[in-house]
Design a protein around this nucleic acid. Structure first.
Lengths: 154, 154
DNA sequence: ATTTACAGGACCAGGCCGGTCCCCTATGTT
DNA sequence: AACATAGGGGACCGGCCTGGTCCTGTAAAT
C-alpha cells in the first residue's frame, strides 16, 4: 500500500509535537508520550533514533529531554523518513546500483528513477514547520499554483 | 524505506513488457517469464491479479495468454500499484476515516493528506506508455525543477 | 548519593511477503 | 472425442521485518 512504517509515522507526530512548542523548548519522552498518545516505550525508541540521526539533540540526566536540533523550517519530511527507515527507494534499484541483478535487461529502470526523484522532491519540500502550521500552507513549494495542491506536474 | 512490494514491481515490468509489443498483441505467462527473467510461478500470480483488476484481459485454453485491457497510454502507475497492493496510503488514515483512533487529537492529519495527494497525483500521471517510451520522456514534469532535487545527502 | 532520564541493547510474537504447488476449467488441435 | 495447452483460484510455507516491550548502563541535576 505504499506505506511508511509506523515508526516513521510516530516520528513525524513526535517531531511535530516538539515543533509546536516555543523555539528551543525541550520535552522528555514521557511528556511527549502523553501529548501524542503514543505508548511510552515506543516514544523512547523513536526519539533515540531521531537523536542518532541528529534531527534531535538530547540532554541526559534529571531535567533532560529532547529538543529539535535545527529550526523546524529546515527539517524535511524526507529527512525524517530517511532517518527512521533508511533511504527512500520505491524499488530496490533506486537505492543504488548493484541491488538488482537484472539491471542490464530491465527496461523500466530509468523511468522509475524519475518517479523516484519526483516523489523524493515532494517529500523534501515539506518541512516540519509546514506540517505544524497548516494555515501557512506550503506556499513556497506551490507558489505558481495558488489553487488546490493538485500535483499537476507531469 | 517507502518501498512498493516486489509483486508490484514485477507487475510493472510485466505490463511494460506487454506494452512494448505491437498493439493488441498477447503473450502467455511463460513467454513473459522468459522475457523479463521473473520466475514463472510468480508471473502467473501477478498476471492473474492484474487480470482481476481488469488491467489485463486473459484468454484461456491453448493459444491463450494475456493482453492489455486498454491502450498503454491510459494505464497509470497509480492504477497498477493499487491493483496489486490496495489503496495508496502513506499512513493508515490516508486510506479513509476510522483507521486511526487518534484522528481527533492528531495535528498532522491534514498536511499528510496533502502530501498523499501530491504523491498519488505524481503516480497517476505516469502512464505505462511513459515507462516504455523513455525517449519521449515526460518533459513537462521536469521543466521547473532542473537537476536533482536538492534535499539532503544520503 | 540519589534520582531522573537518555543510550543501547536484547528480545519476542505476529503478520505479511516472496515464492511454490496443485487441481480445476476453458479452449484449440488432431 | 480426446488430448494438450494455458489460465483461474486457491492453499501452503518459511523467513524476515514490524511493532512493541524490557533491562541494564550512564550522564546530569539536586
Amino acid at each position: 500500500m505504499l506505506r511508511i512504517s509506523k515508526l516513521t509515522d510516530y516520528g513525524i507526530v513526535l517531531l511535530a509535537a516538539l515543533a509546536e512548542r516555543p523555539l528551543g523548548a525541550t520535552a522528555n519522552a514521557r511528556e511527549l508520550a502523553e501529548a501524542t498518545h503514543i505508548p511510552f516505550p515506543m516514544v523512547g525508541k523513536v526519539l533515540k533514533a531521531l537523536a542518532q540521526a541528529q534531527l534531535l539533540v538530547s540532554h541526559r540526566g534529571a531535567k533532560g529531554g529532547y529538543g529539535l536540533a535545527r529550526p523546524a523550517e529546515s527539517i524535511t519530511v524526507a529527512e525524517i523518513i530517511e532517518a527512521l527507515e533508511g533511504p527512500i527507494a520505491l524499488v530496490e534499484c533506486n537505492a543504488g546500483p548493484g541491488h538488482c541483478e537484472q539491471e542490464a535487461s530491465c527496461h523500466v529502470r530509468d523511468p522509475w528513477q524519475r518517479i523516484h526523484s519526483t516523489i523524493r522532491g515532494t517529500l523534501s519540500h515539506v518541512t516540519l514547520r509546514g506540517l505544524v502550521a497548516p494555515l501557512l500552507q506550503v506556499e513556497r513549494t506551490t507558489t505558481r499554483e495558488p489553487g488546490a495542491p493538485r500535483g499537476s506536474h507531469v
